[in-house]
Computed example of a mutant assay.
Amino acid sequence: MGLFLTLLLKITPLYLNIVLGYISVKILDIKRESIANLVIYILAPIVVFSATISVKIDYTLISLPIFFFIFCSFTAILTYTLCKKYWSDATSNVLAFSAGTSNAGYTGIPLALIFFDHTFADIYIFTMLGFIFYGNTTGFYISAKGNFTVKQSLLKVVRLPILYAFILGLILNINGVSIPEELFIYTSQFKGAYGILGMMILGMSLVGLKKSSDLDKKFILISFFIKFIYWPLAILFFIYLDKTIFNLYNSEIYKMMFLFSILPLANNSVTLAILHGIKPEKASITILLSTIFSIIYIPIMLVLYGGFN
């Protein structure tokens, strides 16, 4: 019980940023589009560049984003195949996209900064690239199946500034170039800013949300099952296989992988719901519920895992 309360006290302040985000739009009339652009086009590239240039590149590290890209893609394809018969519109496409990812950035980075030292926090951010590439390749294609081509999806990836930040950081890292300590301290501050503003964006997206008669219980139940049961069980099974057979990773990497598996749903689904003409309340309510649920769910799962001491 003591460990649970300790973990709960650690993560609860992060969720206060959601309230601040809601207030900033509702009362201060802050434009959420401006904040989103700031996060996507300035903060995210700096955070990824700083992490990529700082980590020690080896085959084990390279395999982490590749693993999650494959896992996310497999989960999305499986979900779409099994669930497409349940809806006549593009709901199953949005569900499949959501099933294949998690809130690895906005929720995950602040948690990684809490539970890991800066070295493993950078490895976490580097690994997060697997989720980013999934969301803009396999995930985007599945979510937009029938409306967009593979070429259009890939063009979306090419336009991402975060991609070029990663490539530049990787090239400099491989060639032994490092950033000065003073500059590293400066760029490290962007990780905290990214996490704060990212969580605030979740709160901003709730403005205008109303009780909807279109509350889709089936959508919510399937989303929760995949995210909060399938994901951790699948990752724990992989950890078991690695411990007993492959021996690729260490205990710190296992903790990081497990953290990825217990994060709430990603808020990208709201954007996709709008894109496909599906009432965004369906995705917004599901994401809100998963985020609230994760306040208790995450510390419980960490306790069951044994803590992140």
Rank of each mutant, 00 (worst) to 15 (best):
Leu163Cys: 09
Tyr15Thr: 10
Asn37Met: 13
Lys211Phe: 12
Leu236Ser: 14
Val19Ala: 11
Ile196Thr: 15
Thr91Leu: 14
Thr12Ile: 14
Leu248Gly: 03
Tyr240Glu: 09
Gly100Pro: 08
Phe184Asn: 12
Ile66Thr: 08
Asp242Tyr: 03
Asp242His: 00
Phe120Thr: 07
Met1Leu: 00
Leu163Trp: 15
Ile179Val: 12
Ala90Ser: 10
Glu252Gln: 11
Pro264Met: 15
Ala165Lys: 08
Ser213Ile: 15
Lys218Met: 12
Leu7Ala: 02
Val303Met: 11
Ala90Met: 05
Phe224Asp: 01
Leu172Asn: 02
Gly139Ser: 03
Ile245Met: 14
Gly208His: 12
Thr119Ile: 08
Leu263Glu: 05
Ile35Arg: 02
Ser251Leu: 10
Lys255Tyr: 11
Tyr254Phe: 06
Met128Cys: 10
Ser188Gly: 11
Thr107Leu: 09
Asn175Gly: 15
Tyr86Pro: 12
Ile125Met: 06
Cys83Pro: 09
Leu215Arg: 03
Phe69His: 03
Asn309Gly: 13
Ser50Gln: 07
Thr6Val: 06
Thr149Asp: 09
Ile229Lys: 04
Asp117Thr: 14
Val158Thr: 05
Pro13Asn: 04
Ile77Lys: 01
Ser251Ile: 08
Val157Glu: 13
Asp117Arg: 04
Leu154Lys: 07
Gly105Trp: 15
Gly195His: 01
Asp58Glu: 14
Ile171Phe: 12
Lys279Thr: 13
Ile62Ala: 09
Val55Ala: 02
Thr127Cys: 04
Trp231Cys: 10
Asn175Ala: 15
Ile292Met: 03
Ala165Thr: 11
Phe224Ala: 00
Leu209Ile: 05
Val303Gln: 06
Met128Glu: 14
Phe67Tyr: 12
Leu38Asn: 07
Leu289Arg: 05
Ile66Glu: 10
Met204Arg: 00
Leu61Pro: 03
Tyr230His: 00
Lys282Pro: 04
Asp122His: 08
Leu28Arg: 08
Leu197Met: 13
Lys255Val: 00
Lys218Cys: 01
Leu8Phe: 11
Ile35Pro: 04
Phe69Gln: 01
Phe225Glu: 08
Ser63Cys: 13
Ile278Cys: 10
Phe219Ser: 06
Gly277Trp: 01
Met257Arg: 00
Pro161Gly: 11
Leu43Cys: 02
Ser153Arg: 07
Pro45Cys: 11
Leu78Gln: 06
Ser88Asp: 14
Phe67Ile: 15
Lys218Trp: 09
Leu263His: 01
Ser54Met: 05
Phe126Trp: 04
Ile287Gln: 01
Thr12Asn: 13
Phe67Arg: 02
Ile42Gly: 00
Asn17His: 14
Gln152Trp: 13
Val158Arg: 15
Ile220Glu: 13
Asp122Tyr: 13
Gly105Lys: 06
Lys31Tyr: 06
Tyr59Ser: 12
Tyr254Asn: 01
Tyr134Leu: 13
Ile295Thr: 06
Ala165Glu: 05
Ile66Asn: 13
Phe190Tyr: 10
Leu16His: 13
Gly195Ala: 07
Ile239Glu: 01
Leu16Val: 12
Met128Gln: 06
Ala121Pro: 08
Ile162Arg: 07
Leu215Asn: 10
Gly176Asp: 02
Ser269Gln: 02
Leu16Lys: 10
Ile132Asn: 10
Ser24Met: 09
Glu281Gln: 09
Lys56Asp: 15
Ala99Tyr: 11
